[in-house]
């Protein structure tokens, strides 16, 4: 299984699309690792610097409709090769969410008020997160505070995460 624990990058905006996560001009790359320097390059967000703010981060917490737009799996790949295998949001665009699980990555949806609470308590300062996948809980620590949050994830989605993705899951079954 991939690593889901580590420092959090807070992106305080809804509707962050896959063109922002990885612009189309980089879709000509044939190696996933080549996407690393371009991740979130076109993100419109005050104060965000993709060259610095991704450093050391393992988790993104953001608002609604993350990953909307294009079907490009280069979006989760760009996150993955920056060490980010977990995105927590109010909700996701369908294709992006499926791409995450298909890659054995984790996309967790939470109620807007829970997301809001995480932003209020932890954004702006260094915070980190630890996931207990079996208990379906994660704990956030930062600024002298701690919060534990329950989440739900579908059985099939969890099977994909444990199998390391859809290719290995499907290969043995269909």
């Amino acid at each position: 299984m991939k690593n889901f624990n580590g420092k959090i990058l807070f992106l305080d905006r809804s509707d962050i699309n896959t063109d922002e996560i990885i612009p189309a001009k980089y879709l000509t790359e044939s190696q996933k690792a080549a996407l690393k320097p371009y991740c979130l390059e076109d993100l419109i967000l005050d104060g965000f610097d993709s060259k610095k703010d991704l450093e050391d981060k393992s988790v993104i917490i953001t608002r609604a409709n993350f990953g909307c737009g294009s079907s490009r799996e280069h979006a989760p790949w760009a996150l993955e090769c920056n060490g980010i295998n977990l995105v927590i949001a109010e909700n996701f665009a369908r294709i992006f969410r499926q791409n995450m699980f298909n890659c054995g990555m984790l996309a967790i949806s939470l109620a807007p008020e829970v997301i809001d609470g995480l932003f209020k308590d932890f954004a702006g300062n260094e915070a980190s997160l630890e996931v207990d996948l079996d208990a379906k809980k994660f704990t956030v620590t930062g600024s002298g505070k701690t919060a534990t949050v329950d989440f739900t994830v579908g059985d099939f989605d969890l099977d994909l995460v444990k199998a390391g993705g859809w290719v290995s899951y499907a290969d043995s079954r269909y």
């Binding site: 079907s71 490009r72 294709i95 298909n102 993705g165 290719v167």
Partner: peptide
């Protein structure tokens, strides 16, 4: 529309 992994399968 799907991603590359769904396409691959």
């Amino acid at each position: 529309g799907v991603g590359t992994t769904d396409l691959e399968v």
